[in-house]
């Protein structure tokens, strides 16, 4: 019994030593919502866990999105990633003038590709193209992103333009039809590095939802975040409250029909 304990203890020490002594190769990701143009080194792999809480709508609403991502650097400025996405949301529903809470769960799979065209250090501006498709049990998604970023001394500036197409199957009477929704979002972030291991960031997200080509919802989120890097681990945390609405206001100048009052996201990752 004592021998078994010693073996486990030695294995744990060896594992800890390996983790501590591994070379630092983590991506310099400073933002939680806004993407930067950098890609993983060739052969480098990263396991990322995303957790997002969205809450505060016109009526009760709480949603948790969990994504587990396996990212790989393919070389020649290209990287790919595979995601397993789990979503659980509870919201108030009204049926025959009676309200109740309803919980929905969804599982989906996504695959992303990112290609760096210009380097944020070597060129006046970093530029990357990003594409992602997602397949779920009740939703199909296509997403494209244009990523720009720039380093000016200890500051990092990043901007993303995002186009997303969502297709949801449904029935009109007995006839099956596809509900189409497009999203056009813009992200802007400014980060400051206190050291290579600690950064603070301000992120802004300008979100727009179109239904049948008409802009129905538009809102601006703005919040603060922190990013910490420790050898091969990094953690990013951001609180993003909705600060203004441009279309579909429901309450005190916010849009709480389509969007939430606040989003909180925690990312943690291990590079190996």
């Amino acid at each position: 019994m004592k021998q078994k304990t010693t073996i486990f203890r030695n294995l744990a020490i060896a594992g800890l030593f390996l983790l501590i002594s591994a070379p630092s190769m983590a991506q310099d990701r400073m933002f939680t919502y806004t993407y930067q143009s950098t890609v993983l080194n060739k052969g480098q792999r990263e396991l990322e866990v995303w957790n997002t809480l969205r809450t505060g709508r016109q009526d009760y609403y709480a949603r948790i999105d969990h994504r587990t991502e396996f990212e790989m650097g393919l070389g020649k400025n290209l990287q790919t990633a595979f995601y397993l996405n789990l979503t659980s949301k509870t919201q108030a529903v009204e049926l025959n003038a009676e309200k109740s809470l309803e919980t929905e769960n969804e599982i989906s799979f996504s695959n992303e590709w990112k290609y760096k065209l210009l380097d944020p250090v070597a060129h006046p501006v970093g530029l990357a193209l990003y594409g992602e498709y997602g397949i779920g049990s009740s939703e199909y998604e296509l997403e494209g992103k244009l990523i720009l970023d720039k380093k000016i001394k200890d500051f990092t500036l990043a901007a993303n333009a995002v186009y997303e197409l969502e297709l949801k199957p449904g029935y009109d009477g007995s006839e099956k039809e596809w509900e189409k929704e497009t999203k056009n979002d813009y992200y802007l972030a400014l980060g400051y590095s206190f050291s290579p291991k600690f950064h603070i960031a301000m992120e802004n997200a300008f979100k727009n939802v179109f239904e049948d080509g008409t802009l129905n919802h538009s809102a601006l989120y703005s919040g603060l975040g922190v990013a910490c890097v420790q050898d091969n681990f990094w953690i990013n945390f951001t609180v993003l409250p909705q600060v203004a609405s441009f279309k579909g206001e429901t309450n005190s100048s916010l849009n709480l029909n389509e969007f939430e009052k606040v989003q909180i996201r925690l990312l943690f990752s291990y590079v190996f």
């Binding site: 380097d119 060129h123 006046p124 501006v125 720009l148 720039k150 380093k151 000016i152 001394k153 500036l157």
Partner: peptide, 10 residues
Amino acid sequence: VLFISCAPAL
């Protein structure tokens, strides 16, 4: 303007 006006860091 800020993005395109500055020189590369390298």
